[in-house]
Design a protein around this nucleic acid. Structure first.
Length: 505
RNA sequence: GGGGGUGUAGCUCAGUCGGUAGAGCAGCGGCCUUUUAAGCCGUGGGUCGAGGGUUCGAAUCCCUCCGCUCCCA
């Protein structure tokens, strides 16, 4: 599969006139002594200085000078002969520097004029307010700490090519404030979820990423090989069966936040590796799981955004109001008025409805699978405000507990927000005999050609035979939740290094 | 897999009817001590994604391929 070489990606030969100039400067810098010093120590961050002294007026600052040592990247420059302004960016923000020949001295001012945008520098000086009123640092000494050999993208428009933004995320993070914000939201979301579970007594576990039998979900796995043991291993598609083994073991409230891998297509909503939160709570049912799901999402929004009223792609979504709760059958009937209640369990009526919708109906599908196909086609995308859809058919819920009143459905829910599945949870199936039967049905489906169907996990059955307490569990897609909170349309915007095709053949 | 968009200087983008490549930022050389998309004067920089075709002549028209991107399945 030969690919045409793309000049902007070639690693070794892509030097240009600007890089030549920077390399010459680097060479001169090397000749002057230690070219990559690491003895500069800062004592402040740009954002902290702005927060702390932003309200202090110029006169007060002159009376009681505050000195600071800052380090960061030179992002812009305004040179006016013997005095200049520049912007320094560090992890806490961006602050303006004032560099006057009088304060800096001839030699250091000369060094400043040699600098290039993107260089990493260390500065020392005093806080003051400019004539225009901007809090700035009057620099009294300056050092080059690391030379930028490559020019930065344009200062005003920044980086707009999405391919370069994802491939060279380091450049994107330097120049795109919105990208930095998205990943701050992500970190705060994960931290809030972790804290919310920890403070309720949940135990954080790490279970295998490489599994001999990939379980806990219906998906095609990645396959790998362990050489020393000469055995096939699968990258996990879910941690579920291991976390429930831990519940058997006595960790009655347990959770994990980690990566899952699914060997499926790539789209604006799918990345081959994605982050999942799963938690399990013994002596709870799916109603309790829905309550906790709701609470955790609210606290994540509050932690990351400071509000529960969000806007997603122009749509106002209120996470503060109680989430709606509807059964699958109620939702399907509401959006398919031509179906009567009795039709919902009638495979023939459902097949006719699928045909009307232009969806093919596989002969192996029972009424439950057919009903879910209709749900996904006619309802799912319309559920904009947070809605729990409950009581999924048994056929599509091989790990969920049967409903007491209606053994054809399970005590399961999915949470839909902005037309997308955000979480999936249920009262866990803890009857080992029922679970074994469900696994056998999955194996039959796999043998009939369903690549996504589950394997039979005998050790998991053995674990259940020791007795698992009645338990509720939830899985929450972190990437999709972050997309929602950060108002991003593509999963690539919320994953630091999304999967892309390789740069060169 | 199907359809739409797109690929031109380091970055962001123009490029008319097919006539041999442009701007801003960045760079380089000057001037300039309160600017903030600083300003002014001067100046270098191009495999127009790749390959093929049509043509006297192709960034432009046609074909194939590659990448990115959006929508649909």
């Amino acid at each position: 599969m030969a690919r045409s070489p793309k000049r902007k990606w070639s690693m070794e030969q892509d030097s240009n006139d600007q890089m030549m100039v920077r390399r010459e400067k680097q060479e001169r810098w090397r000749e002057q002594g230690q070219a990559y010093p690491n003895d500069f120590r800062r004592d402040a961050l740009a954002g902290d200085l702005l927060a702390r002294y932003g309200d202090m007026d110029g006169a007060a600052l002159e009376q009681e000078p505050i000195s600071a040592r800052l380090a960061g990247r030179l992002m812009s420059r305004r040179v006016m002969g013997k005095a200049s302004f520049a912007d320094l960016q560090d992890q806490g923000g961006r602050i303006q520097l004032f560099l006057g020949k009088d304060h800096l001295g001839e030699a250091a001012y000369g060094l400043f004029r040699e600098l290039d945008l993107g260089d990493i520098i260390g500065v020392e000086g005093e806080i003051f307010r400019t004539r225009a009123g901007e809090l700035s640092l009057r620099v009294t000494s300056l050092r080059l700490l690391s030379k930028a050999l490559r020019p930065l993208p344009e200062k005003w428009h920044g980086l707009s090519d999405p391919e370069i933004r994802f491939r060279q995320r380091y450049v994107d993070l330097i120049v795109t404030e919105a990208a930095r914000r998205t990943f701050r939201i992500r970190a705060q979301t994960v931290a809030a979820l972790r804290q919310g579970l920890s403070q309720r007594g949940f135990f954080e576990a790490e279970t295998p990423m490489m599994q001999p039998i990939p379980g806990g979900a219906t998906a095609r796995p990645f396959i790998t090989h362990h050489h020393a043991l000469d055995m096939t291993l699968y990258l996990r598609i879910a941690p579920e069966l291991y976390l429930k083994r831990l519940v058997v073991g006595g960790f009655e409230q347990v959770f994990e936040i980690n990566r899952n891998f699914r060997n499926e297509g790539i789209s604006t909503r799918h990345n081959p590796e994605f982050t999942m939160l799963e938690w399990y709570e013994a002596y709870a049912d799916f109603h309790r799981a829905m309550d906790l799901t709701e609470t955790l999402i609210r606290s994540a929004a509050q932690a990351a955004l400071g509000t529960e009223a969000i806007t997603y792609q122009g749509l106002d979504i209120d996470l503060g109001r109680p989430f709606l709760r509807l059964t699958v059958e109620e939702a399907v009937r509401a959006h398919n008025p031509e179906l009567a209640q009795a039709d919902l369990r009638d495979p023939h009526c459902l097949a006719e409805q699928l045909a009307r919708l232009g969806v093919g109906c596989h002969p192996g599908w029972g009424w439950g699978k057919r009903l879910i196909e209709i749900f996904e086609k006619t309802v799912e995308g319309k559920l904009q405000q947070p809605t729990f859809i409950t009581h999924y058919p048994l056929e599509v819920s091989p790990l969920a507990r049967r409903n007491n009143d209606d053994p054809e459905v399970t005590d399961r829910f999915e949470l839909m927000i902005a037309g997308r599945e955000i979480a999936n949870g249920f009262s866990e199936l803890n009857d080992p005999d029922d679970q074994a039967a469900r696994f056998r049905a999955q194996v039959a489906a796999k043998e009939a050609g369903d690549e996504e169907a589950m394997f039979f996990d005998a050790d998991y059955i053995r674990a259940l035979e020791y007795g698992m307490p009645p338990t509720a569990g939830v899985g929450m897609g972190i990437d999709r939740l972050v997309m929602l909170l950060a108002d991003q349309a593509s999963i690539r915007e919320v994953i630091l290094f999304p999967h892309l095709r390789p740069e060169q053949a």
